[in-house]
């Protein structure tokens, strides 16, 4: 099992974590900086191009990228031996680096939870991927939007923590 914590394996996992993270946060920012602000400018007859084609495809890569970013990140923290101390925000190890990366890990975990258990179920309702009464769709869309915005807000301190500390 020693090869799992070999320096090259640690690097590879970090690279996979970054690749997944780019896919995840890139699509999160696409939704918040591009898609949501411009939907109102699209004529109604053209809206299905976004709602029925682009958004479902983007949401597929978005939610799986979120899951894999968390998976690779947790593996990385385990490889480097600080998963417990970081999740305890460094209070067990009295280590500021563990606290810093721990904040980032918790923000990331909250964000991934929002993706899978709030944004995705509500987007399925809003986009008509699951059957709900028509009057339930605006509320579902609003909930998905606000949690997407919450994740955009958290992506600022999350990314700060992730790149602030480099523990090898």
């Amino acid at each position: 099992m020693g090869f799992l914590t070999d320096p090259y394996a640690v690097f590879l996992v970090r690279w996979f974590h970054v690749l997944s993270g780019i896919m995840w946060i890139g699509l999160l920012w696409y939704f918040n900086f591009v898609q949501i602000p411009n939907m109102a400018k699209i004529p109604d007859e053209q809206k299905p191009a976004i709602g029925k084609v682009i958004a479902p495809a983007a949401l597929f890569w978005f939610r799986w990228a979120a899951a894999f970013t968390i998976l690779w990140g947790l593996i990385q923290a385990w490889q480097l031996g600080y998963i417990g101390d970081a999740l305890a925000l460094g209070l067990t190890s009295k280590n500021a680096a563990h606290m810093s990366i721990g904040f980032g890990m918790w923000f990331g975990l909250i964000m991934a939870f929002n993706v899978w258990f709030v944004i995705w179920p509500n987007q399925q309702k809003a986009l008509g991927l699951v059957e709900v009464p028509a009057e339930a769709k605006p509320a579902a869309a609003r909930t998905a939007m606000l949690f997407s915005r919450t994740n955009t807000m958290l992506s600022v301190p999350m990314s700060y923590s992730m790149v602030a500390v480099h523990i090898t």
């Binding site: 918040n32 900086f33 500021a96 606290m99 606000l146 807000m153 600022v156 700060y160």
Partner: peptide
């Protein structure tokens, strides 16, 4: 009152504010 997260600009400003508080907590806790 309007939810601040409805504005993208306020969303980013809140994110920066959380970042500053977090950085100060990390710097001065230990």
């Amino acid at each position: 009152m309007k939810n601040p997260l409805e504005s993208l600009q306020n969303t980013i400003l809140l994110g920066i504010a959380i970042t500053i508080v977090m950085a100060l907590v990390v710097k001065y806790t230990f």
